[in-house]
Amino acid sequence: MRFPWGSAEVADLPAVGTRIDTLAHVEGSPGARLRLIRAQGEAFRREFPSTGTPDSVVTCDLVTLPYPTRFGLFRASRALAPFLSITNRMLVIRWTENGTGRVLLFEPSDHELGRYTPYFDSLSQKTPALVERQVVRVHGTVLGHLARLGIKPEEVDYLMFDHLHTQDLRRWIGTTAHQRDLGGQPRAAFPNAKVIVQRDELAAMAELHPLQRPWYQPAAYRDVPPEAFLPIEGSVVLGPGVAVVKTPGHVFGNQSLVLNTSTGIWVSSENVIAAEALTPEHSKLPGLAKWTRSWQQEVVLNANTIETTADQYNSIILEKTLADRSQVDARFLQFFPSSELTGAWTNPGTGPTFAHRHLTHG
Protein backbone atom coordinates (compact mmCIF):
# COMPACT_ATOMS: atom_id res chain seq x y z
CA MET A 1 0.00 0.00 0.00
CA ARG A 2 1.42 3.38 -1.01
CA PHE A 3 0.26 6.69 0.34
CA PRO A 4 -0.25 9.88 -1.68
CA TRP A 5 2.85 11.42 -0.18
CA GLY A 6 6.52 10.52 -0.35
CA SER A 7 9.04 10.82 2.46
CA ALA A 8 10.22 14.22 1.21
CA GLU A 9 6.69 15.59 1.20
CA VAL A 10 6.09 14.33 4.76
CA ALA A 11 9.32 15.96 5.90
CA ASP A 12 8.16 19.26 4.39
CA LEU A 13 4.88 19.30 6.31
CA PRO A 14 4.76 21.87 9.13
CA ALA A 15 5.72 20.94 12.69
CA VAL A 16 3.71 21.60 15.82
CA GLY A 17 4.51 22.14 19.49
CA THR A 18 7.72 22.60 21.46
CA ARG A 19 10.05 19.62 21.52
CA ILE A 20 10.56 17.99 24.94
CA ASP A 21 14.33 17.51 25.14
CA THR A 22 14.00 15.77 28.51
CA LEU A 23 12.35 12.83 26.72
CA ALA A 24 15.03 12.34 24.07
CA HIS A 25 15.51 9.02 22.28
CA VAL A 26 17.56 6.55 24.31
CA GLU A 27 19.90 3.85 23.02
CA GLY A 28 21.14 0.58 24.46
CA SER A 29 19.65 -2.75 25.47
CA PRO A 30 15.96 -2.92 26.49
CA GLY A 31 16.98 -3.09 30.16
CA ALA A 32 19.33 -0.12 29.87
CA ARG A 33 16.66 1.86 28.05
CA LEU A 34 14.16 1.06 30.80
CA ARG A 35 16.47 2.53 33.44
CA LEU A 36 17.01 5.69 31.38
CA ILE A 37 13.30 6.03 30.58
CA ARG A 38 12.42 5.97 34.29
CA ALA A 39 14.90 8.78 34.92
CA GLN A 40 13.60 10.81 31.98
CA GLY A 41 10.02 10.35 33.15
CA GLU A 42 10.82 11.54 36.65
CA ALA A 43 12.57 14.62 35.24
CA PHE A 44 9.71 15.53 32.90
CA ARG A 45 7.15 14.94 35.65
CA ARG A 46 8.90 17.64 37.67
CA GLU A 47 9.06 20.04 34.71
CA PHE A 48 5.63 19.60 33.14
CA PRO A 49 3.44 21.43 35.71
CA SER A 50 5.33 24.65 34.96
CA THR A 51 3.70 24.72 31.50
CA GLY A 52 0.31 25.48 33.13
CA THR A 53 -3.06 23.80 32.68
CA PRO A 54 -5.55 23.66 29.80
CA ASP A 55 -8.81 25.57 30.09
CA SER A 56 -10.96 22.44 30.12
CA VAL A 57 -11.07 18.70 29.52
CA VAL A 58 -14.33 16.84 28.82
CA THR A 59 -14.90 13.10 28.33
CA CYS A 60 -17.32 11.75 25.70
CA ASP A 61 -18.31 8.07 25.50
CA LEU A 62 -18.40 6.69 21.96
CA VAL A 63 -18.81 2.90 21.84
CA THR A 64 -18.43 -0.25 23.95
CA LEU A 65 -17.33 -3.33 22.04
CA PRO A 66 -15.79 -6.79 22.58
CA TYR A 67 -12.04 -7.36 22.54
CA PRO A 68 -10.08 -10.59 23.08
CA THR A 69 -9.09 -11.11 26.71
CA ARG A 70 -5.77 -12.60 25.60
CA PHE A 71 -4.88 -9.28 23.95
CA GLY A 72 -6.28 -6.80 26.46
CA LEU A 73 -4.81 -8.51 29.55
CA PHE A 74 -1.78 -9.97 27.79
CA ARG A 75 -0.91 -13.40 29.21
CA ALA A 76 -2.03 -12.46 32.72
CA SER A 77 -5.78 -13.08 32.87
CA ARG A 78 -7.24 -16.32 34.22
CA ALA A 79 -10.80 -15.33 33.29
CA LEU A 80 -12.84 -17.97 31.48
CA ALA A 81 -14.38 -15.38 29.16
CA PRO A 82 -12.55 -15.27 25.81
CA PHE A 83 -13.71 -11.68 25.31
CA LEU A 84 -13.88 -8.65 27.54
CA SER A 85 -15.51 -5.28 26.87
CA ILE A 86 -13.76 -1.96 26.31
CA THR A 87 -15.33 1.49 26.05
CA ASN A 88 -13.75 3.88 23.57
CA ARG A 89 -13.93 7.50 24.70
CA MET A 90 -13.01 10.86 23.21
CA LEU A 91 -11.38 13.66 25.19
CA VAL A 92 -12.09 17.27 24.21
CA ILE A 93 -9.26 19.53 25.38
CA ARG A 94 -9.36 23.32 25.16
CA TRP A 95 -6.63 25.84 25.92
CA THR A 96 -5.69 29.42 25.09
CA GLU A 97 -2.56 30.21 23.10
CA ASN A 98 -1.53 33.85 22.61
CA GLY A 99 -5.13 34.91 23.11
CA THR A 100 -6.48 32.32 20.67
CA GLY A 101 -8.60 29.39 21.79
CA ARG A 102 -7.45 25.91 20.70
CA VAL A 103 -9.44 22.68 20.53
CA LEU A 104 -7.89 19.20 20.45
CA LEU A 105 -9.94 16.04 20.00
CA PHE A 106 -8.14 13.00 21.38
CA GLU A 107 -9.45 9.67 20.05
CA PRO A 108 -12.29 11.08 17.88
CA SER A 109 -13.02 7.64 16.41
CA ASP A 110 -15.46 7.38 13.53
CA HIS A 111 -16.67 4.06 14.94
CA GLU A 112 -19.22 3.61 12.15
CA LEU A 113 -16.33 3.17 9.69
CA GLY A 114 -13.90 1.72 12.23
CA ARG A 115 -15.94 -1.48 12.35
CA TYR A 116 -14.53 -2.36 8.90
CA THR A 117 -11.05 -2.87 10.33
CA PRO A 118 -10.14 -6.39 9.11
CA TYR A 119 -10.11 -8.01 12.55
CA PHE A 120 -13.39 -6.48 13.72
CA ASP A 121 -15.06 -6.93 10.34
CA SER A 122 -14.22 -10.64 10.40
CA LEU A 123 -15.45 -10.94 13.99
CA SER A 124 -18.72 -9.19 13.10
CA GLN A 125 -19.35 -11.52 10.16
CA LYS A 126 -18.97 -14.54 12.46
CA THR A 127 -21.25 -13.11 15.16
CA PRO A 128 -25.05 -13.47 14.95
CA ALA A 129 -26.79 -10.09 14.78
CA LEU A 130 -28.71 -10.77 18.01
CA VAL A 131 -25.49 -11.45 19.90
CA GLU A 132 -23.74 -8.44 18.38
CA ARG A 133 -26.54 -6.16 19.56
CA GLN A 134 -25.96 -7.46 23.09
CA VAL A 135 -22.21 -6.83 23.15
CA VAL A 136 -21.82 -3.65 21.06
CA ARG A 137 -23.31 -0.49 22.57
CA VAL A 138 -23.11 2.88 20.82
CA HIS A 139 -23.13 5.80 23.26
CA GLY A 140 -22.68 8.72 20.90
CA THR A 141 -20.86 10.13 17.91
CA VAL A 142 -18.03 12.61 17.64
CA LEU A 143 -20.15 15.27 15.91
CA GLY A 144 -23.08 14.68 18.25
CA HIS A 145 -20.92 15.24 21.32
CA LEU A 146 -19.42 18.42 19.87
CA ALA A 147 -22.89 19.79 19.13
CA ARG A 148 -23.86 19.10 22.73
CA LEU A 149 -20.76 20.96 23.93
CA GLY A 150 -21.43 23.91 21.62
CA ILE A 151 -18.25 23.39 19.59
CA LYS A 152 -18.49 23.96 15.86
CA PRO A 153 -16.49 21.52 13.69
CA GLU A 154 -14.59 24.38 12.09
CA GLU A 155 -13.35 25.41 15.56
CA VAL A 156 -11.39 22.17 15.99
CA ASP A 157 -7.65 22.67 15.51
CA TYR A 158 -6.23 19.19 16.09
CA LEU A 159 -7.25 15.55 15.85
CA MET A 160 -5.04 13.05 17.62
CA PHE A 161 -5.02 9.30 18.25
CA ASP A 162 -2.55 7.29 20.29
CA HIS A 163 -2.21 5.23 17.10
CA LEU A 164 -4.18 4.69 13.92
CA HIS A 165 -5.36 1.11 14.48
CA THR A 166 -9.00 0.83 13.29
CA GLN A 167 -9.15 4.52 12.30
CA ASP A 168 -10.79 5.72 9.08
CA LEU A 169 -10.38 9.52 8.80
CA ARG A 170 -11.96 10.13 5.43
CA ARG A 171 -15.12 11.78 6.77
CA TRP A 172 -13.09 13.89 9.20
CA ILE A 173 -10.40 15.27 6.83
CA GLY A 174 -11.98 14.69 3.41
CA THR A 175 -10.57 12.96 0.36
CA THR A 176 -9.07 13.92 -2.98
CA ALA A 177 -11.15 11.45 -5.01
CA HIS A 178 -14.54 9.75 -5.17
CA GLN A 179 -15.03 7.04 -2.53
CA ARG A 180 -17.21 4.22 -3.79
CA ASP A 181 -18.11 2.89 -0.33
CA LEU A 182 -19.10 6.38 0.88
CA GLY A 183 -21.13 7.18 -2.24
CA GLY A 184 -19.13 10.24 -3.23
CA GLN A 185 -16.24 12.47 -2.29
CA PRO A 186 -16.69 13.48 1.35
CA ARG A 187 -15.94 17.03 2.36
CA ALA A 188 -13.91 17.42 5.53
CA ALA A 189 -16.14 17.53 8.61
CA PHE A 190 -13.23 19.32 10.35
CA PRO A 191 -11.99 21.69 7.62
CA ASN A 192 -9.40 23.44 9.81
CA ALA A 193 -8.12 20.47 11.81
CA LYS A 194 -4.73 18.80 11.46
CA VAL A 195 -4.02 15.20 12.47
CA ILE A 196 -1.09 14.94 14.87
CA VAL A 197 0.72 11.67 14.20
CA GLN A 198 4.18 10.26 14.76
CA ARG A 199 6.25 10.16 11.58
CA ASP A 200 7.19 6.55 12.46
CA GLU A 201 3.58 5.44 12.17
CA LEU A 202 3.08 7.06 8.77
CA ALA A 203 6.21 5.31 7.56
CA ALA A 204 5.06 1.95 8.93
CA MET A 205 1.62 2.29 7.36
CA ALA A 206 3.14 2.75 3.92
CA GLU A 207 4.19 -0.91 3.92
CA LEU A 208 2.43 -2.92 6.62
CA HIS A 209 3.97 -5.97 8.26
CA PRO A 210 1.74 -9.09 8.50
CA LEU A 211 1.48 -8.53 12.28
CA GLN A 212 -0.07 -5.12 11.59
CA ARG A 213 -2.49 -5.90 8.77
CA PRO A 214 -5.50 -7.09 10.82
CA TRP A 215 -5.62 -3.76 12.67
CA TYR A 216 -5.22 -1.06 10.00
CA GLN A 217 -7.43 0.12 7.14
CA PRO A 218 -4.70 1.24 4.69
CA ALA A 219 -7.09 1.70 1.77
CA ALA A 220 -8.85 4.42 3.77
CA TYR A 221 -5.68 6.55 3.49
CA ARG A 222 -5.14 6.24 -0.25
CA ASP A 223 -6.98 9.44 -1.14
CA VAL A 224 -6.67 11.57 2.00
CA PRO A 225 -4.94 14.96 1.62
CA PRO A 226 -1.37 14.88 3.00
CA GLU A 227 -1.63 18.49 4.17
CA ALA A 228 -4.18 17.35 6.78
CA PHE A 229 -1.36 15.69 8.77
CA LEU A 230 1.10 17.19 11.23
CA PRO A 231 3.79 14.50 11.57
CA ILE A 232 5.98 14.82 14.66
CA GLU A 233 9.12 13.07 15.80
CA GLY A 234 9.24 12.34 19.50
CA SER A 235 7.57 14.27 22.31
CA VAL A 236 6.22 17.84 22.24
CA VAL A 237 4.30 20.30 24.41
CA LEU A 238 1.26 21.49 22.45
CA GLY A 239 -0.03 24.07 24.91
CA PRO A 240 -0.33 24.83 28.63
CA GLY A 241 -0.59 21.49 30.38
CA VAL A 242 -1.00 19.56 27.11
CA ALA A 243 1.76 17.30 25.78
CA VAL A 244 2.23 14.46 23.31
CA VAL A 245 4.73 11.87 24.50
CA LYS A 246 6.13 9.24 22.16
CA THR A 247 5.47 5.76 23.59
CA PRO A 248 6.46 3.19 20.96
CA GLY A 249 5.68 -0.49 21.23
CA HIS A 250 1.96 -1.13 20.82
CA VAL A 251 2.68 0.24 17.37
CA PHE A 252 5.99 1.66 16.11
CA GLY A 253 4.65 5.21 16.23
CA ASN A 254 2.52 5.05 19.37
CA GLN A 255 2.01 8.29 21.31
CA SER A 256 0.33 9.24 24.58
CA LEU A 257 -1.56 12.32 25.68
CA VAL A 258 -0.29 13.90 28.93
CA LEU A 259 -2.37 16.51 30.73
CA ASN A 260 -1.70 18.68 33.77
CA THR A 261 -5.02 19.26 35.53
CA SER A 262 -6.48 20.43 38.81
CA THR A 263 -5.92 16.92 40.22
CA GLY A 264 -2.39 16.55 38.87
CA ILE A 265 -0.94 14.78 35.85
CA TRP A 266 -3.00 12.37 33.74
CA VAL A 267 -1.76 10.12 30.96
CA SER A 268 -3.97 8.57 28.28
CA SER A 269 -3.32 5.90 25.68
CA GLU A 270 -4.31 2.35 24.78
CA ASN A 271 -1.06 0.80 25.99
CA VAL A 272 -3.10 -0.76 28.78
CA ILE A 273 -6.87 -1.11 29.07
CA ALA A 274 -7.28 -0.55 32.82
CA ALA A 275 -5.62 1.63 35.42
CA GLU A 276 -4.99 -1.50 37.51
CA ALA A 277 -2.77 -2.83 34.72
CA LEU A 278 -0.19 -0.29 35.93
CA THR A 279 -0.48 -1.42 39.57
CA PRO A 280 -1.58 -5.07 39.15
CA GLU A 281 -0.62 -5.90 42.74
CA HIS A 282 -3.93 -4.22 43.70
CA SER A 283 -6.03 -5.91 41.00
CA LYS A 284 -8.78 -8.38 41.83
CA LEU A 285 -9.04 -9.53 38.23
CA PRO A 286 -8.37 -13.28 38.16
CA GLY A 287 -4.70 -13.97 37.58
CA LEU A 288 -3.22 -10.48 37.25
CA ALA A 289 -1.54 -10.05 40.64
CA LYS A 290 -0.26 -13.63 40.73
CA TRP A 291 1.00 -13.55 37.14
CA THR A 292 2.96 -10.33 37.60
CA ARG A 293 4.53 -11.65 40.81
CA SER A 294 5.48 -14.94 39.15
CA TRP A 295 6.98 -13.26 36.09
CA GLN A 296 8.45 -10.30 38.02
CA GLN A 297 6.70 -7.78 35.80
CA GLU A 298 5.10 -4.63 37.13
CA VAL A 299 2.57 -3.90 34.35
CA VAL A 300 0.13 -5.82 32.14
CA LEU A 301 0.21 -4.90 28.45
CA ASN A 302 -2.56 -4.47 25.93
CA ALA A 303 -0.80 -6.38 23.18
CA ASN A 304 -2.53 -7.39 19.96
CA THR A 305 0.22 -6.84 17.38
CA ILE A 306 3.31 -7.49 19.55
CA GLU A 307 5.31 -5.23 17.24
CA THR A 308 8.01 -4.46 19.81
CA THR A 309 6.91 -5.84 23.17
CA ALA A 310 9.92 -4.70 25.22
CA ASP A 311 9.48 -1.15 23.91
CA GLN A 312 5.81 -1.21 24.85
CA TYR A 313 6.67 -2.38 28.37
CA ASN A 314 9.20 0.45 28.68
CA SER A 315 6.65 2.97 27.35
CA ILE A 316 4.11 1.88 29.95
CA ILE A 317 6.72 2.38 32.66
CA LEU A 318 7.20 5.92 31.32
CA GLU A 319 3.44 6.50 31.52
CA LYS A 320 3.40 5.02 35.02
CA THR A 321 6.22 7.34 36.07
CA LEU A 322 4.42 10.43 34.73
CA ALA A 323 0.92 9.86 36.11
CA ASP A 324 -0.10 11.09 39.57
CA ARG A 325 -2.01 8.95 42.06
CA SER A 326 -5.79 8.91 41.79
CA GLN A 327 -7.57 11.14 44.29
CA VAL A 328 -10.41 8.61 44.36
CA ASP A 329 -8.25 5.58 45.22
CA ALA A 330 -4.54 6.14 45.75
CA ARG A 331 -3.72 2.52 44.90
CA PHE A 332 -4.31 3.42 41.27
CA LEU A 333 -2.83 6.02 38.96
CA GLN A 334 -4.37 8.80 36.89
CA PHE A 335 -3.94 6.77 33.75
CA PHE A 336 -7.02 7.10 31.53
CA PRO A 337 -7.21 4.23 29.02
CA SER A 338 -8.48 5.55 25.70
CA SER A 339 -10.35 2.24 25.52
CA GLU A 340 -11.16 1.32 29.12
CA LEU A 341 -12.05 -2.12 30.48
CA THR A 342 -15.79 -2.21 31.16
CA GLY A 343 -17.61 -4.89 33.14
CA ALA A 344 -20.34 -6.87 31.38
CA TRP A 345 -22.44 -9.84 32.41
CA THR A 346 -21.44 -11.57 29.19
CA ASN A 347 -17.76 -11.54 30.21
CA PRO A 348 -17.34 -13.13 33.65
CA GLY A 349 -14.03 -12.50 35.38
CA THR A 350 -13.26 -9.31 33.45
CA GLY A 351 -14.97 -6.65 35.59
CA PRO A 352 -12.39 -3.99 36.55
CA THR A 353 -11.34 -3.51 40.16
CA PHE A 354 -11.28 0.24 39.51
CA ALA A 355 -12.35 2.39 36.57
CA HIS A 356 -12.00 6.12 35.92
CA ARG A 357 -14.87 6.35 33.36
CA HIS A 358 -14.24 10.04 32.82
CA LEU A 359 -11.54 12.70 32.99
CA THR A 360 -12.82 16.18 33.74
CA HIS A 361 -11.00 19.45 34.29
CA GLY A 362 -11.95 23.11 34.27
Rank of each mutant, 00 (worst) to 15 (best):
Y216E: 07
R222T: 12
H209M: 11
P214V: 10
R222V: 10
H178R: 13
D181C: 07
L211D: 15
Q179L: 15
V244Y: 07
E207T: 12
E227N: 09
D200G: 02
L211I: 15
S235Q: 04
A206F: 01
E207Q: 14
Q212T: 11
D200W: 05
Y216S: 09
G183R: 09
P225N: 02
Q217P: 08
D200K: 13
P248Y: 04
A203G: 05
L230D: 04
R199P: 01
Y221Q: 06
A206R: 11
A177Q: 14
P214F: 13
G184S: 01
I196K: 09
E207A: 15
P214C: 13
L238I: 02
F190C: 09
Q212P: 08
A189R: 12
L169Y: 06
G183H: 06
V245A: 04
G174T: 06
D181G: 02
P191V: 03
L238V: 02
T166C: 13
Q198S: 15
I196V: 13
Q198L: 12
G249P: 05
V236F: 06
N192S: 08
P240M: 04
V236I: 11
Q179A: 09
L230R: 15
A177Y: 09
I232W: 09
A188P: 06
D181I: 11
S235D: 00
R180M: 07
N192R: 06
T166L: 15
R187I: 08
V237A: 03
T247A: 06
A204F: 10
R171T: 14
A243M: 04
D181W: 14
G241Y: 09
A204V: 11
R187M: 11
F229Y: 14
H178C: 02
W172G: 00
F229C: 04
I173D: 10
P214G: 12
Q212L: 15
E201K: 03
R180S: 13
R170V: 01
G234V: 09
N192A: 06
E201D: 05
D223H: 13
A203H: 10
V237Q: 04
Q198N: 14
Y216M: 10
L182Y: 02
L202A: 08
L208A: 06
Q217Y: 10
V197S: 04
G241S: 08
P214K: 13
W215K: 12
